[in-house]
Structure formats: C-alpha cells, structure tokens
Design a protein around this nucleic acid. Sequence first.
DNA 1: TGGTGGGATTGAAATGTTTCAAGCGTCGTG
DNA 2: CACGACGCTTGAAACATTTCAATCCCACCA
Lengths: 347, 347
Amino acid sequence: MLTQQPRNGRAPSVKDVAAAAGVSLGTVSNVLNRPAVVSTATRERVERAMADLGFVRNESARQLRAGTSRALAYVMLDGGNPFFHDVAEGIETAAEDADLSLFVCNSSGRSEREAKHLDRLLQQRVQGILITPVDPDAPHLADLAQRGLPFVMVDRFSRAGGHCSVAVDDVLGGRIAVEHLIDRGHRRVAFVGGPSSIGQVRERLQGARAVWAEFGMPEDDLIHLPTEALTVNEGRSAGERLAGLPSRRRPTAAFCANDLLALGLLQHAVTAGLRVPDDLAIVGFDDIDFAAAAAVPLTSVRQPRQELGRTAARLVLDEATNPDHVHEQATFVPALVARASTGTVRR
Amino acid sequence: MLTQQPRNGRAPSVKDVAAAAGVSLGTVSNVLNRPAVVSTATRERVERAMADLGFVRNESARQLRAGTSRALAYVMLDGGNPFFHDVAEGIETAAEDADLSLFVCNSSGRSEREAKHLDRLLQQRVQGILITPVDPDAPHLADLAQRGLPFVMVDRFSRAGGHCSVAVDDVLGGRIAVEHLIDRGHRRVAFVGGPSSIGQVRERLQGARAVWAEFGMPEDDLIHLPTEALTVNEGRSAGERLAGLPSRRRPTAAFCANDLLALGLLQHAVTAGLRVPDDLAIVGFDDIDFAAAAAVPLTSVRQPRQELGRTAARLVLDEATNPDHVHEQATFVPALVARASTGTVRR
DNA sequence: TGGTGGGATTGAAATGTTTCAAGCGTCGTG
DNA sequence: CACGACGCTTGAAACATTTCAATCCCACCA
C-alpha cells in the first residue's frame, strides 16, 4: 500500500505526484489518461510515485474540467418495495457497462423529497436521470425537460411525451390477471387497489373491467375494494373489508394492484382461517421475489423488472450521447406466473 | 420558471449571472453564501437573474474549492434484503439532518464490486463511509482506515478496532431466540444458517448453544442445518433436509439466522402440509417487515434497524468533524418479537 | 471641509484536473 | 552536416466556485 503518508491534511494531487516522480504534471495526467504516449521508464516512475503517495484522482476536478459527471441517477418511488430494487439493479448493470456510476435515491413517495433529490442531482451535473415519479405531472419534472437534461420515466407513461418512458402494458396486465381468474372458474372477483390517482391502478382496473365485460360477466360482480396505498398493511385491511361482505356478495378471488397488497391480503386470509386458493384465490402484480416466497406462493403478473431498468438506462444514454435521439415509449408485455394461490379450478 | 434559455451548450455559471445582473461575480457568490451582507436591491436583482437564466450551482466546482464533498456513502451488503434498506433509511435521516447527501451503493455480496464502489467513493472525496462489508478483514478496508477516511462498520464488529462499529449483540440474540423456544416447550431445535464464515451466523449459533447448555439440554438435540447463504431459497432447501430427518430426530422448532431463511422454511413447511407452529415452530432474525407480513406471522429477533443506521451516521460524522473523536463500538440489544409462528406451548 | 467609519462591492487567487500547442532531443536520411 | 521527423515531455490555459483583502462610496461628525 501507501508507504509514505503526506498527511499534511491535504490529499496528494497530480502536482505532488509530479514532484515526487520528477516530471511535469502534464506527464502525470498522460500516465492516467493516455498511458501509451509516455515512455515505459517514466510511466513506471510515475506509477510508483502514485502508489507511494496513495494518490487518488479528484473526481470533482475532473468533472469540473470535463463539464459533466460520469454518473446517472435513479430516483425511485418506494425503496421498501423490492420491485424498485430490482429495477435499480437492471439500471446499474447498464450503467456499469457504460462505465458510469449510478446514484440511487429514494423519494419514499414524498414529492418534496423527490424535488430535493432532483435539485441535488442537477447540481451534481449527472448525465441523465431515471425516475419513477410520485406525480408524473409535477412541475419539477417539466423543469428537467426544459433544461434539456436527459431523463426517462420508469414504470410510468408520460402523457406530455417530451421524454422517453419505459413501462409494461398495465391494461393488458389487468386483462390477463382477470382472464386467468375467470378461467379458474371464478364468477365474483374483487379488484384491490388504490388510490386511483396512480395511473397504474386505474389501468390495471380498466383492463380487468374490459375483460370482465368481454366474458359477459355482470358488472356488479367485479367489486372494487379501494386502498389508500399499495402496501401490505392496506392489503390486510382490504381483507377485513372483504370478509365483512355478505356471503352472497363475497368474491371468491381477488386481483391485487401489486404484490404487497396481495401479501397483506393473503396474510389476513390465512389468519382468518380461509384456505387459499379454495376459499379465496389471489393474484398479485409485479412478481417480486417475496411473491414466490410466500407461504402460499402467489400467482402474479410479472413485470420484467431488470429489463425495465436496463432499457431505461439504454434510452437515457442514447439521449445523452446521440444527437439524433428520438423519444421512445418502450412498452413491455406482462406475463402471468401461475402459482398455488390460484391453483385449483372451481367447479 | 426559466424565461431565458441560453442553451449554447453550457449551463449558466455565476459569471453569466453576474453579467446579467450587472454585478461582479463575487457579489453573486455572496448572494448564494452570505445573503446578509448584500443589499436588498442587489440581492433581488441577482436572484432574478438566477431565476431567469435557470442557474444551478455546480457542485464539482464548489467541492473542488472546498476540498471536500457534502456527502456520506453507505455500501450495503445485499440490496435484496429489506433489512439493509431500513438501515439505509436510518442513515439517510441522519445525513439529512446534517445537510449531507447520501450515496447508497450495493455490493451484492461481491467483494470486487465492493472494492469498486469504495474506489469511486474515494475519488468523490466523500466525507465518510458506512459499510456492511462482505469480508470485515478485506485489505481494501484496512486501506480506508490508513487513509484516515472516517468509516464505520454497520451490523458487523471489527476485530482490528481501528474504527467505529455499530451492531447488535448477536450472541444475546441467539440466546433469546432459543430461550423462547425452550419456554414454549421445544426439546429438539434446529439452527438454520450459514456459511459460518459470516460472523453473525457463528455468534447467533454460539448464543443458541450457550443457552441450550444452560438449560441442561442434550447437545445433540440442537441440530445445525448449515446453509450456503442467507436467502429464501436456502431456507426452502433447509426445510427439505429437515423433513428428511428420521422422525425421532426431527426438531419441533427452528431458529433461523435471518428472516429470509425463515420465510423460505415457512414456505416449505406450509407446502409440505406442516402446521406452523404446531408441527414446526419458527423463529427468524432481523424482524424485517415481511416477517410480520408472512401468512403465519413470524416470531423474530428484532434489530433496531433504523436506529443502527442513525447511530452509524452519527459516529461517522463525529469522526469527520470532531478532532477528539474516539472510536466506539456501539452495541444494541436485540429483542424478541413473538408472533404466531411460535404461538403455542407444547406440552 | 476634511476625516472617519462602515456597509457594499470588487478582483484576484486558489482549488485539481485535462488538454493541447509548443518545445526539446535524438535519430535517420539525404 | 543539415534537416526533418518522430517520440516524449512540458507549461499554460480553462473549468466554476469561494474567499478575502482591498477598494469604493456615502453619510455622518467634528
């Protein structure tokens, strides 16, 4: 490691390295950035000096000179939901391939935190921003676009269209979930999810209703149980409301707007002594790892989480580097993953 | 928002603002950093110019001048485990209070990724690093210490002691878990966890064995089912091995080294038709939210996750700012949270 | 009227890196 | 021997910000 410690408070700079190696500071820079142009002897001398001094490049100075950072950022909506972690991993692999760092931020669903993060990222001069926004129409997002900073919405569609976005077809997701339940013989189904200010929730419900109608089912037999958030707790409380319904109105299956709700609902059902899927079948959405890991493995509508992230990163990089970039709304097709929670056919 | 777009490729700088407001660049800097010394009229003029131009401070230049960044970093071990996310949240609240940003990195248990992250963070000149290391004795960690960069180990104890650390008493955690099972009448118990290269696993097992011996139980009746990792999958496979034991050797309860293992084991048990807790009681460790959310809510040994994070951040900040800082090994006391998975007393 | 105090503003220096035109030697060729 | 070419190294400029000593200007006072 470092043999010499110039701990005079200040970290060693190229200048120090240059002095130690007896060369000019331009040469040190060449060793770092264009090793081919410097002679072997000099290079080795400089490299030894760097090792001895424990030299570490100062990224701010590089960045200042370069005018831009070597980083992307992802602002996620809910760090507590593993879904977003998986998306982040997809982004990170793509960022790594492009030799960029990734700053991961978490807005925790709070708009002011989101704005704060964005502000910081702007100050850092990140090359591009990926975001799953609290509110796709928030003014601070429009700001980004106006600034010309490459950014893409992840898991949300833009209505304005001044940027790229990456998401799955949520209407279709709703359709396949409910079609699966109809297939399994269910004739009274609950849709659990809310608030409807969230675009996804609306679209998944819309898909559910569409396919319900297409199969000629009575509108009233698709019951919407609204929730205040997409959390396990809310899923549990939806379970209570569901159990409170008069038995002739009580659904035999529930389609939840995401897996956290589904897990909460599952827990309530088990606690209440209901058998899943016999008394109540459950379908979730996202297919997070915990869905497969549940005591009764959850049927879920799978989103290609990592793929979503990778594509988003690809798009933001294209926008950042390609002058002919055109905005793109990448849509993925969700797929049903059938597991035990909808395992049997009702007669 | 910004009325004027100087999109000549370059973001507006203090110099541009100064020109637009008809003042010197020193004055602009004063408006930003010491608003009190500049007259109201000038200040307003400058502020308007900033708004018009859409001026955003360049953090790299600030940082270059200041010599240090305004950020902390947390390198977590496994982003897929919600435990670490909760720790990160604790850190973030503390960082926010100190008006610092937090860079969250994920080593995913891979040492080379960890090293890469650390290298980047060094280049960024972060004020301090919090880390749950893959290997507490890795040379790149010793490097950090030697560089004098404030860092603290989170959820791990250092043996070397050249730095702070924050963790719970894992031996005690193992004790209370197993004591709880003994209380509930269990006389044959499995410890599920591994690899034993992980300090935590060793210590939790050690605590388990200690209390087992103190209660005068035969050593052979505490059965170690080793796993290759602390994951749901490994928990499932441990379940299979457990089911394969001859019935007179088969434990009536399992203490898992973390909640992911416990969830996997629970899933296997339910799938295999075992009743939890009657046929098999289960205790986890960490008390992540998904433990409480399981179909059979999991009894778990709670770590104060956010508190762990907050304390770690406090310590690293102290090391960064207080010249009289002395390294501290903060220890928290784990607590048993009893839920349904150990709910009944065996006779 | 000259001087003083002080509030407001200024200009230059400094931070660490990269880039690039220019310089320096040395070697080979004519 | 002169010249050009080539390989390597150099030094200065530029990036955006902050700080601080110096300056300016005005009002007030003697």
